[in-house]
Design a protein around this nucleic acid. Structure first.
Lengths: 294, 294
DNA sequence: TGTGATTGATAGGATTTGACTATGCTAGGT
DNA sequence: ACCTAGCATAGTCAAATCCTATCAATCACA
């Protein structure tokens, strides 16, 4: 049973004639006759009575007609639905973000996107890089916002922004007033860092290592705000990316002068993953926020 | 969008692999790949993400899958329904009968057929030949039981039974006791006949004409029972077919001895008309009653 | 009643298309 | 680093659809 056979069948039913049906379906009349016969053969019943000049549905034809119409309708509906989803920027988008980006970068673009495309529904998963990558590969999220570059042949990434690192010092610290500080100057300070699974911890340690500094970690947390509060209380110092800066009376933020003391954030997608219009739109939307300040 | 494309698509969705889907669908893997690509091209979206070794539905694929399944299901259902109707002797049969046959011939076969095939639903239309033929040509009835032969190139007929004609005489008539009577002997009697549109009127007049008798019609009716009653009351005489005979104290039935003084009844169908199993079964059923007495 | 026109079926050749084999390329596993 | 698995590509082939031409039958009309 083929689609065009159903189309021809319906056309004959509607026009009451093979010839007119053939015109309607833009085929030669013998072709249409053949296909109808083939359909009848497959079904094992006659669908039409050929009565001289008139053609009329048999009982079987009458039974079959609504079903054939339904099938053709379903096909059109299926096609239309896909087209609809493709042409309109709507539908679900699920994204992943690491905790050291989420609260600082995401709120504004998220709100603006939702306002711009009310039809969309964005789901955000906040988790650490490793688990986000798992979810990405599992297809649970469409894209992930995290620190790049991301090694891995199965992903593609787009840079969003590179931001300088800043040392956080207690306001009373002797380096707190400087405009710039080298990590070497901080080598003996107690360090407060993120927990192990946070990638920014690795970034911080990496930059220290390049400065031949081995940080002495006295406190670990899952979020910058805790660290800031601790630094403010004088427990030690830390390093944060630019976007985590928040004005506090007890903390001073001093730019780290070391080479490559920066973090780059970007969007990562699975290579070979097909992105829908919404998803692409969201990606583009994120890129407009690339260099803006939050 | 072709049927096999939908089948292949569903197979890939189910197996999660082009290769396994190809095995399942009994085609070579490249053929399947091609058809999937063709489908994707027509829809304008990617249905699968080819991620290295794994294949996964895209969002569009997820939307499309249930619809594709529904379409394939509908096709199977349509085919099954036709097959079901074809294999089982069930469904509607509508027949037409002329009034001079209906009450005498039909009750028994109708009852037996309904008992034999309880799934069927027989509709009977009682009308005169001309209107039955109209209905037959209009497809409103599947077959008609009437007096044959039926001229007309667009019909086919099967003889059921040939029955002799009998003269009805008042019991007191001087010929009432005879075993046989010739029409010539009745030439001066007043005749009671059916109304003009009844074909048996034509049959009766025809047989008279052959006997060089011009009947003098004094009463017309739509049914034999009225005529019998009138004959019984002494108004005149009439002619009826065998099956219309009913024992009455006031009437005598005498066989008409003339040549070809008979009526043949048969079943007529539209030439080229496709008959379903039930309809054919009913036709065959009628033929088993061909020579039986009612 | 015969003749022309309309309609569906049939026949044979041309074109399209789906399927197959062989092969390439990339990703994963050992 | 090699090997395997899996999808894509290339080229060929066969089948199926479509076409034109024609036939047979019906119907309209003279």
């Amino acid at each position: 049973m083929e689609v065009h056979q159903l189309r021809y069948f319906c056309a004959v039913s509607e026009t009451g004639s093979f010839t007119r049906a053939a015109e309607k379906e833009q085929v030669a009349q013998p072709s249409l006759s053949q296909q109808i016969m083939k359909l009848e053969e497959e079904l094992g019943v006659r669908l039409f009575d050929r009565l001289g000049r008139t053609v009329r549905l048999t009982g079987f034809g009458q039974v079959f007609l609504p079903r054939a119409r339904a099938i053709l309708g379903e096909m059109k509906a299926a096609k239309d639905e896909v087209a609809e989803r493709q042409s309109s920027v709507s539908g679900p988008v699920s994204i992943g973000v690491i905790p050291t980006i989420a609260p600082y970068f995401l709120p504004l673009p998220l709100a603006l996107f939702s306002r711009k495309y009310p039809q969309t529904c964005i789901t955000v998963v906040e988790d650490v890089t490793a688990r986000l990558m798992d979810r990405l590969r599992a297809g649970q999220i469409d894209l992930a916002i995290l620190a790049t570059p991301m090694r891995g042949h199965d992903v593609e990434s787009f840079t969003l922004r590179t931001e300088r690192l800043l040392a956080i010092l207690p306001r009373a610290h002797h380096l707190a007033k400087k405009r710039k500080v080298m990590l070497k100057e901080l080598r003996d300070e107690p360090f407060l860092l993120l927990r192990e699974d946070h990638c920014f911890r690795d970034t911080a340690i990496e930059v220290c290592k390049r400065a031949r500094v081995m940080p002495r970690v006295v406190f670990e947390s899952g979020q910058f705000s805790s660290i800031l509060a601790m630094v403010g209380a004088g427990l030690g110092i830390s390093i944060v990316p630019e976007m985590a800066v928040e004005q506090r009376p007890d903390c001073a933020f001093v730019s780290v002068g070391d080479d490559r003391a920066s973090r780059t954030i970007g969007v990562v997608t699975l290579k070979g993953r097909y992105l829908s219009r919404v998803q692409l739109a969201f990606l583009a939307h994120l890129q407009t926020f690339a260099q803006k300040e939050a």
